[in-house]
Design a protein around this nucleic acid. Sequence first.
DNA 1: AGCTTGAGCGCC
DNA 2: AAAAGGCGCTCAAGCT
Length: 554
Amino acid sequence: MFIVLAGSPRGGITLTELTPEGVASAPLRLDGAGLLTAVASREPQRPRWVWSDTALWYPALLQAGLRVERSQDLRLAHRILKLAEATKGTALRDAPANAWDGSAVPPGDHANTLFDDGASENGADPIAEFLLQRHTLDDVARTDPAKAARLQLLLAAESCGALIAEEMRFTGMPWRRDVHAATLEEALGPRPQFGGRPAKLEGLADRIRVALDNPALNPDSQPDLLRSLKRAGLPVTGTSKWELRELRHPAIEPLLEFKKGARLLSANGWAWMDAWVQNGRFHPEYVVGGVVTGRWATRGGGALQLPAEVRGAVHADEGWSLVVADAAQLEPRIIAAMSRDEAMAAAGRKRDLYQGLVDAGVVDTRAHAKIAMLGALYGATSGESARLMPRLTRAFPRVIGLVEAAARAGERGEQVSTWLGRSSPLPGDDWAGADAVPSTDAPAADDRRARQAARDWGRFTRNFVAQGTAAEWAMCWMAGLRQRLRALADERGEPHLVLFLHDEVMVHTPAHLADAVTIAVTEAADDAGRLLFGNFPVDFALTVATVSSYDQAK
DNA sequence: AGCTTGAGCGCC
DNA sequence: AAAAGGCGCTCAAGCT
């Protein structure tokens, strides 16, 4: 059963029940309090809640202590269907741009959007949109039922991801301010009272000024620093640490240390802590489907880029543990399954797929295996990685055939799609590509540019199918895990997800349930593999660790 | 004054 | 040693 919510969680809500055949009940008018009662009373029947935007509706429910198991996020679903190769020729695909093409609910504005004034504004009627999406899938199913089923799975997984993202934001990641503050003091010195540089950082700045003989130097200014380095006779083209690392000069050591500290201060310093950590919890905002491939992004907080330095501050509560699991060599396993490459799947049967490549005699060392695989996934054109490619092609023709085909399609300006049917964007207007007609004034240069652009786009589409399908697997993994965690709850608490990082999850759990969580996360990975790839014998190996703080994982 | 851009560096 | 896909975030500089 589907229940469509229209309006906004503050009020002016209409609730409509739909049967699978699309027959609607008489709409129910509700205010904000009525919504909570209605959700609580209907959720035990496990309906799929259909709403415009999870970030708009779900926080109000979570605030009231309610959770839902299943949903359809119409905005996320619309975006997938609108772009999907599979929906070519359907009404949704051909419809002119409308309110559903808009972007996510803006931050801090979760209950004040265009949907606020009622269901029909700008044609943004959730019931009509939901039915259109159903019909679109029906249209696809008429010619290719399997393709439609995959798209449906994708929409469900994406929508479940949106639920999880809001749940994680609401609950937050356990964060020890004292541990974080100690890290900052150790690296930077005491927190400055009235702004300005922390003492240790200023001390390093002084050493750099002396070494470069420039008392006025501001090492935070890239142009200023570059000028000073050149004046000191150093052969530099930029100020990146990779370039500086190679130089021998008294200024280099304090400069590298300064850059490291400055980075920590600006990205995860005291200001960051004040903005994002409250009551022992870090509350990041995830953007589901924020990356074209289907990966998540963040909006503020940078939860997906927590540097190793501060991970010690992610600390389980007293009596609780963190279970950290990451999928080992996920993307190679994904393309093995997609291409039905038995040989690579066999190499991944052991826990370490890279070692599997060595054991199979494809390459001589694990390091080479890794470099070669990255080359296959990213499209290496030079260096060691490119030199190892022929060995991979011989050993795994199906895998390499898959990624090469994706690259060639991109070079021709075509879309490619993930396993479940998310399609790559079409190249932009400035993309001339392989078919570019050379202009008369500078044909050679234009032609070169066009070829380069085509190759660049090919590397993008090559990676898109692997990265995007990996993201789909990960969402299915996490969705299954979420269900299993709920079932583990007892009187001492409920294990819950606190971090999702592309191929890694972290669960905060009562300590006595850590082993059960480890089993759950492993079983959920197996389930996800079967859900996507059926009986194809590919393993999705995990590295799982039970720890008290995040820096202890790995 | 406020916006965009580029450099740089953190993550997968 | 560097290369090759996807990002977010911050600062300073350069622009309007």
